[in-house]
């Protein structure tokens, strides 16, 4: 098979697998939440309810896809697409295995950060174009929260870059052959995990859509498959952050006995379960608490991590 054909095949396979995984996660999360809350969760459609998402999708597709007359039509339509596009593009640099990667850019990590910073537009524009006060409050929260936590996300990853000496994600994974970076970069991992939850707008940091105060936040006016895009986009985002954490801190595809892709999938799945467990256990903070936590705890920790790592790398060289 020629290299370009192989690249296209890999790209299509990754795309199909990711969308399937995102759809399965919707069901998986509900089952897991059910388990932790001592109830069944959806278990009617297919074996163990595994086709629940198919049923949900049919429902969403057959519903009226309503655009409010007061909304800014073009922006309202584009907004849900942005989240899908940016997250899927970011997956392009993730090394699932030594030979399974769309593009090994030498700025791979920066590309991921760039795409996650563009993802902010999706929620911001969705809320603005809806012309609804709850949607606007939700998207204001989303913009402020994601902009703030992006800063720590970038800073927390620079320690990894210093140790590996490269922005290329493949080089970062190869550099973890001796020791996974979750040990020397524990602080970085903690800050990255917090920033990742805020970036994906998941509980406990889901204030942009806090349903008990602002209806559904930025996607209050969305219905049908446009809402479905936000929904699937959220699960793709969870998978992306988990996959990045695996790549940067847990040795990516490295591991004994099993094939590399299996190791990568296993590690990612464990982190995704962590995301869901957080949702099942933690309450939602107030918005000022979220901001104070970010700027007064996470930022100093990220800077401390950066300074200490820099000093150690310099002393060793």
């Amino acid at each position: 098979m020629s290299p370009s054909l192989y690249a296209i095949v890999i790209l299509i396979v990754i795309l199909v697998v990711l969308l399937t995984v995102a759809a399965l996660l919707v069901w998986f999360e509900r089952r897991l939440l059910g388990l932790w809350q001592d109830r069944y969760g959806p278990n009617r459609v297919g074996p163990f309810g595994i086709f629940q998402t198919v049923a949900d999708t049919i429902k969403l597709l057959t519903k009226e896809d309503w655009i409010p007359p007061f909304a800014d039509r073009p922006v309202f339509v584009i907004a849900p697409a942005i989240v899908m596009v940016t997250v899927l593009l970011a997956f392009g640099v993730v090394p699932f295995a030594p030979t399974v990667q769309v593009a090994d850019l030498n700025i791979g990590l920066l590309f991921f950060l760039g795409m996650s910073s563009l993802g902010v537009y999706s929620v911001t524009l969705a809320g603005w174009s809806s012309d609804n006060k709850y949607a606007l409050v939700g998207s204001l929260r989303a913009a402020a929260q994601m902009l703030a936590y992006e800063v720590f996300m970038g800073l927390s990853l620079m320690g990894v870059v210093m140790l590996a000496g490269s922005f290329s994600l493949r080089a970062i994974v190869e550099a973890q052959r001796g020791l996974w970076y979750c040990v020397p970069q524990l602080l970085g991992l903690i800050v990255f995990a917090n920033a990742g939850i805020a970036e994906t707008r998941r509980l406990p940091f889901d204030l942009p859509e806090a349903e008990s105060e602002i209806v559904a936040g930025y996607h209050s006016e969305y219905s049908g498959m446009k809402f479905g895009m936000f929904f699937i986009g959220e699960y793709l985002g969870i998978t992306l952050i988990s996959a990045m954490a695996v790549t940067l801190f847990f040795g990516g595809w490295l591991g004994p006995w099993l094939p590399p892709v299996v190791w990568f999938a296993l590690k990612t799945l464990i982190l995704v379960c962590g995301f869901i467990l957080l949702r099942a256990t933690l309450p939602r903070p107030r918005f000022d608490q979220l901001m104070a936590y970010g700027w007064k705890v996470m930022l100093p920790l990220a800077l401390l991590n950066l300074a200490v790592t820099g000093a150690i790398v310099t002393a060793r060289a």
Partner: peptide, 22 residues
């Protein structure tokens, strides 16, 4: 190119949109 996306398109313009929304 990456810095252009992260800083200009991803951070500064978000602040502009933020102000416009307010």
């Amino acid at each position: 190119a990456a810095l252009e996306v992260i800083i200009y398109a991803g951070a500064i313009m978000v602040l502009f949109v933020f102000v416009m929304m307010l």
